[in-house]
Design a binder for these strands. Structure first.
Lengths: 157, 157
DNA sequence: GTATATATTGACCTAATTGTCTTGAATTAT
DNA sequence: ATAATTCAAGACAATTAGGTCAATATATAC
């Protein structure tokens, strides 16, 4: 698996939050129900995202989570780096501790341009773009069919 | 991390075996010492590679492991698929159970061509090519400096 | 045949990841 | 003030990946 489950949940949650009206806190419980991911686990991930300055959190009634100002400009690379660290793209494919342009594993040279493409892709995918894609109805961030998703939305707003 | 440690060990071991004279069994212990990976753990991985028809194993004195006939044509994609299953490239980046060209996550379309490039690269990297690259002395499959690697080689042959 | 060397097997251990639960702190509505 | 609601924090449990060990089966050398 390319991304850890934790990164996947983080990305899904952030895209979902980005599709909601900004400044209006959304509950962790609602996000987890929507995405179908474990509530308590998502809560910890949301905490990391707060500590990583991607989200604001508010306690008490009317509380919840909001994107920070400018948060729509956050891209997937930032999120993944926050959760998994820089090793995600920097480490050697074969696991060598030392693998650079000078002293390389036999895959290094071929892998490098692909890695750069991956990084470029992850950088160009901002929450803003992803949220718009989802709002268009052509793309999904969870496995529930559209009908159920609408239903859940109606019930709560 | 893109590849699991297990896949990394498997690839390193197979490349190393491919650099040795074919038909001459090499000990698991020697491979693990050369690569600097846990002997007992590598033994289990070698077993998987036997069950996956990439290696032959021989017990008793003069025993060890050999590439199967034509094994030099084995490519990295085959090895990874054997160890991690097909999900490695087929699964959705965001972890959705359902994500195809028809019903997709918002990254799917952009990710697809990159994924294809990764798969193509992994397919063109055969043990034969990788072994030649390592034998040229320009590339490494373990973290030991060349001097120590030579030394280990001398001691045993 | 006996001893030695090797892979095989399965049980076991350890660490990391993923997931759960309980308690506490902060905020708001009444 | 009080009660209700929400996030924060840390302990805990379950699962998986990574790693170890001991007993066994098999082959070879002598």
């Amino acid at each position: 698996m390319i991304l850890s489950r934790t990164s996947q949940y983080a990305i899904q949650a952030l895209i979902y939050i980005a599709t909601r009206p900004p400044g209006e806190p959304i509950l962790n419980r609602k996000v987890s129900e929507y995405l179908g991911v474990p509530t308590a686990y998502l809560a910890k991930i949301m905490q990391s995202l707060c500590r990583g300055n991607l989200l604001y959190s508010y306690r008490g009634r009317q509380g919840g989570f909001c994107l920070r100002e400018g948060g729509e400009k956050t891209d997937l690379m930032q999120i993944i780096t926050l959760i998994e660290g820089v090793g995600f793209t920097e480490n050697c494919v074969l696991g060598l501790k030392i693998c650079s342009d000078e002293t390389a594993c036999p895959v290094h040279a071929k892998w490098k341009p692909i890695k750069e493409k991956i990084v470029a892709l992850l950088h160009e995918q901002t929450l803003e773009r992803l949220a718009i894609a989802v709002q268009s109805g052509r793309y999904r961030i969870c496995d529930l069919p559209m009908a159920m998703m609408d239903e859940m939305g109606q019930k709560e707003i």
